[in-house]
Design a protein around this nucleic acid. Sequence first.
DNA 1: CAATCCTTATA
DNA 2: ATAAGGATT
Length: 667
Amino acid sequence: MSGGGCNIVWFRRDLRVEDNPALAAGVRAGAVIALYVWAPEEEGHYQPGRVSRWWLKQSLSQLDSSLRSLGTTLITKRSTDSVSSLLQVVKSVGATQLFFNHLYDPLSLVRDHRTKEILTAHGVTVHSFNADLLYEPWEVLDDVGQPFTTFAGFWSKCLSMPYDPDSPLLPPKRIISGDVSLCPSDPLVFEDESEKGSNALLARAWSPGWKSADKALTTFINGPLIEYAKNRRKADSATTSFLSPHLHFGEVSVRKVFHLVRLKQVLWNNEGNQAGEESVNLFLKSIGLREYSRYISFNHPYSHEKPLLGHLKFFPWVIDEDYFKAWRQGRTGYPLVDAGMRELWATGWLHDRIRVVVSSFFVKILQLPWRWGMKYFWDTLLDADLESDALGWQYISGTLPDGRELDRMDNPQFEGYKFDPNGEFVRRWLPELARLPTEWIHHPWNAPPSVLQAAGVELGSNYPIPIVGIDAAKARLQEALAQMWQHEAASRAVIENGTEEGLGDSSDSSPIAFPQDMEEDRTALRNNPTTTTIRRYEDQMVPSMTTSLVRVESEETSSDLRVERGRAEVPINLNMDEEPRADIVNQVNNLQHFNIAMALRDAEDSTADSSSSTISRRERDGGVVPVWSPPASSYSEQYVGEENSFLQRHPQSHQVMNWTQRLSQTG
DNA sequence: CAATCCTTATA
DNA sequence: ATAAGGATT
């Protein structure tokens, strides 16, 4: 087939052939070149982390084999600028049309707009589609045509739209391939040597790709779904859908999920099965939250950087990298928090409830800047998703109109008994506490010395004393909030008096920089752009000793226990018992090195001085990506309203809402 | 039946 | 924290 008049289908986070509107349209239009462009530098701070890249690699390879069975292959390009890569491919294959599916994160909104402009200017017809949502953000409006500002309103509107979400499309029967020889693929590198060991562990628990996505969906709908309402609150239950990473990469379409769940609901309804109703509603609600995260991102395209409710910008964050490190490494002294953070570290996964616990602890008890926590989630979660995570952290930080109040402090001890009443979750991830009776498992600092001794727990030695006491945290939070409101009022007064802005605002004119060890080494990257980003960010590595291994020893038990617990400890079924565990046995023997290694790492890390350099470096690098530069306009509104200037500077192709006025009425 | 206590959920 | 709903008296 000659390249003339062929169509490019640009895959991004829609790595599937089923229910893929862009692919379907491309196939209908004629010969297809299926393209994936890997340009992580475009994502700025939010380049995919180790586990995301691990996932992506396999998902792409499965997409490629699907495409091959349909008649073409996936062309991959390594790039630092998607749009110019697209142009190159257009030229080399002589394409006349481009098809892609919408994304709603701030960078994609801008990049896709630019793509449309530039390619159109080059005579290419660009078609874009909704493949990620039940309804496009601009379709879901209230009675007066404004976007909703609370989830409840948004979601009930979604559920009562006058038309159903589009039905899932079947995969194409056959794809007429464009001339792929005109456009050779670049090899894409998604992991470096240092990451291989950590990544090897992931494969025991997860299998990326649309096939597993479909399987996970069916398994969930036919199994755990009916009990979802009951079970979703248990910290370590394997009763959630485990669909989030699949959904993030678009391996299964949310519309398919929605339709199948709805079918089940109808079925249960006809059987008079009431139990299923609540479960279905709750599960669909979690799908709805994902929708809402896109909705928020579209309507507030700065929400990953800036709080939606402006007052939070006056919050006096505690800039303490030792706190931050203790949180990341699960050494805060609060067992539920620590267990969660160790699970995240070792597996890239965390139950939804525990995400709330650890992030709330982060913001309210440690009072670290929420963006640090969000960035860590982004770097370490298998289902890292900018829109969802931004929504989650803003919810926790009290900057959504309907989020939690910031002054409502959650107590990890009580939450522990709520979500992990028998302490099983804590014992699994904190083997050093394994022998502590349930009575004390969530507050070892209160346990009598004799109990601690019997359990082999030495507070301050093999398990930390709480790094911040609850009472102290409460006091500090009250103080911080008072200060925040005071500054907020002062700033508003300044504006109302018509005084020139700028007073007292200077410190907030740019977000608090990430600690330096969180930043990519861009120099290395620029010198060698074909490799993945080099990071000095060690938390992306599984600790040489994973907690599961510690457990094996501490419980001095045989392999069958390991197998049985291993099932629960990793989210998805796999046959751990078939694995020869020589590697693990080896590491178990090195158990004692675990804490030492950590201590050494701490010592090394403390030499790195974080802070100031980050921002200027970012500014210098601003040419490639539309870098977020916070506008210098006033703070007169309770809701941060400056994204209008963002939109003016970075226009979007999708319809843009004038929601600002609407928002300021709500607060 | 109303008042009160208790549980639960909270995007 | 608090509001709603359920259970209890």
